[in-house]
Design a protein around this nucleic acid. Sequence first.
DNA 1: CATGAATGAGCATTCATTCAT
DNA 2: TATGAATGAATGCTCATTCAT
Lengths: 216, 216, 216, 216
Amino acid sequence: MPAAAENTAKTLKQKSLPPGRVKIVASLKTLLEEKDFGAITTAEIAKNAGVTEALIYKYFKDKRDLLHQILSEYLEQYRAQITHDLRGINGVFNKLRKLIWSHINVYATNRVFAKVLLIEVRNYPDYYKSETYERVKEYSDIVLKLIEEGVQNKDIRDDISPKLMRYGILGSIEQVCLTGITFGRKIDPDDLTEQLCEFFFNGIMNPPSKIADSEL
Amino acid sequence: MPAAAENTAKTLKQKSLPPGRVKIVASLKTLLEEKDFGAITTAEIAKNAGVTEALIYKYFKDKRDLLHQILSEYLEQYRAQITHDLRGINGVFNKLRKLIWSHINVYATNRVFAKVLLIEVRNYPDYYKSETYERVKEYSDIVLKLIEEGVQNKDIRDDISPKLMRYGILGSIEQVCLTGITFGRKIDPDDLTEQLCEFFFNGIMNPPSKIADSEL
Amino acid sequence: MPAAAENTAKTLKQKSLPPGRVKIVASLKTLLEEKDFGAITTAEIAKNAGVTEALIYKYFKDKRDLLHQILSEYLEQYRAQITHDLRGINGVFNKLRKLIWSHINVYATNRVFAKVLLIEVRNYPDYYKSETYERVKEYSDIVLKLIEEGVQNKDIRDDISPKLMRYGILGSIEQVCLTGITFGRKIDPDDLTEQLCEFFFNGIMNPPSKIADSEL
Amino acid sequence: MPAAAENTAKTLKQKSLPPGRVKIVASLKTLLEEKDFGAITTAEIAKNAGVTEALIYKYFKDKRDLLHQILSEYLEQYRAQITHDLRGINGVFNKLRKLIWSHINVYATNRVFAKVLLIEVRNYPDYYKSETYERVKEYSDIVLKLIEEGVQNKDIRDDISPKLMRYGILGSIEQVCLTGITFGRKIDPDDLTEQLCEFFFNGIMNPPSKIADSEL
DNA sequence: CATGAATGAGCATTCATTCAT
DNA sequence: TATGAATGAATGCTCATTCAT
């Protein structure tokens, strides 16, 4: 009865979270949809949650800690999703494609999360020492592993550093999504994945054949 | 001797910037090397510059305005550089390569500028309405034009949106440089340009020939 | 014992005003006796109250809001007094006389209040939109009603606009009290009321009989 | 050639006032029409005048001094006017009526002056030591003298203190005008004078005859 | 006659955070 | 589990004013 066990665990976990804590987290999530984390005050969070400011400090070390808890939640969700998504897929490129799709999809679905992760937290000097960052790195490592796997399979070129490829892939995704989020544009994971994969896999250069064609 | 006259004028003009203003700008530049803009107080800036806080507000609308002035200075420099760099280069890919090199080189040379531009300012809600952002967009447009030119020449594929290619290119560069800057690693423009161009131009997929080889 | 209960409630309610708030109000009241509101700093108020500046902003929106709260308190007191004072008095002129006496008496007794109300607040551009002003107007309306009542009874002339009479009465009282307050002179409600009423009721002109006398 | 002499004097006087000074005074006058003196900054005055802030301090001791200069100008004008107006009028009441009319008329014509004189300056603790106040007192004394004259003629009652009558008259006028000015209402000197004089001279009480009528 | 440059001192306000109950 | 009360510390910004040129 693993399913039952899981259910129980989940129920217990949810039940055991004190209502105040839940309200606070929900409150910040809501507020983040409207404004920057930096522009949100603890007073606001508390009021919006219907609790006192002091309660925030019962459950969280910090205002920042609260944010990180939320981020972790999202990150956890995302990791579960990704792990699930990659199952049963064969071939580096297919996996990569799926990963990219999932990545974009998360940002598209969860703009609050994206905004905070891609913009806000980077400003905190110690973000790179945070647990949140650790989780991000874990994900980042998955990508790296995938690429290295591809290199070993000879699917992926070995004359470009895998890390650099990873930077390129992740950087591209971020840039695309960030622009979409910042300007409130729709983000279409299917289309973007398609085009980005073309870009990542084959580059922007017209294949020789075509060039040949055009030269004629 | 009109050239000389102009030079003199320029020199005079530069001299005519009030010493206080110059000191303030220099002061912030220095401080930015040590800490985040958000963590720098006007008091600090003034003290470090050897002037009073009030003087900051004589020359700049805002603390933020001061930052933007500095950014603009850098941006101007950079644009001049880029324009100069691209002269006399033929072929879209050569131009693109040079552009990428210059771009990376600026970040590598000017980490303060990079940090502020890539992290700090994005947190300001109205950054995207600022003049600084306008300048960034101008640069961004240069890249787009270059790509579109390439598409028309049939050098560059027409089955990927030029804007998306631009996002990919710029996003990759940012990601690479940002990591370097954040962790204080050396940034080697030559090497990075080489690898990134390979990545951008031909993609990560092993060329068919090689695949063919490996498949045999 | 509902009355007792109410008393207790009231007492409790008064007690339940946070000590900090009470101290702040008291502090400003004291300071107003020494200097202009504009010359009083929040730092001073807080220090004098033995609390931190921040606490002021917990209980009051503004430095100005704090002032208005105090004014309201006085105004409330005054209104209660007036209402009480007018009870059981017959005849417009008797009522008016009593009103004038009470009015002067308040100013005489409460110079801080008078100074602030008659001088300070008028300088705030939005005083006339404030709740304080509303209360003042309420009082002012009582006077007007009284006059109109007198006009209907034929006690008071109908060839002078009631509003103008009110302006005259209130303006005279203010002028008299203000001078007294400004120069720290004693204000004698009994004497002033006597004379002012003579002035208001019969005017400055010598009665015809006397004139007749003098003309002879 | 008295006219010519006057002209010359005027011309000389105007010519001899340095243009900068003139501009500054004009600037503040203009600004006072829009906002409170307290809300006007020296920077604003200077900019509006097309001069530098420093120049203000060449001609005026103070920002306040500048205001007082302007006030004095007005006051001077007014005194000349009044003196002129009272000439050739016989009888205390006629003189008083004319005085009242002139007084109201000045406020009606010159709202800026009125606002500043009746509201702004009173907030300055040392207003009562200022030269401006001296001039105001001079005018106030004219009124007092007039009343005392009337008392001696037996035109005016001797059972009300002349000073109190003066307070009443001036206070009433102020109150009426101030309300008009504050709420931007039209001020009609003719009508107001008529009614106020009725009020001052005969009081609000219905004359016995009328009362008799109504009692029948 | 006028200015450009610079200043000194003040000051309201914000906010995250703590602690006794 | 939650709160009411209070705080400490910081900070951006304003403004009148001065002085050498």
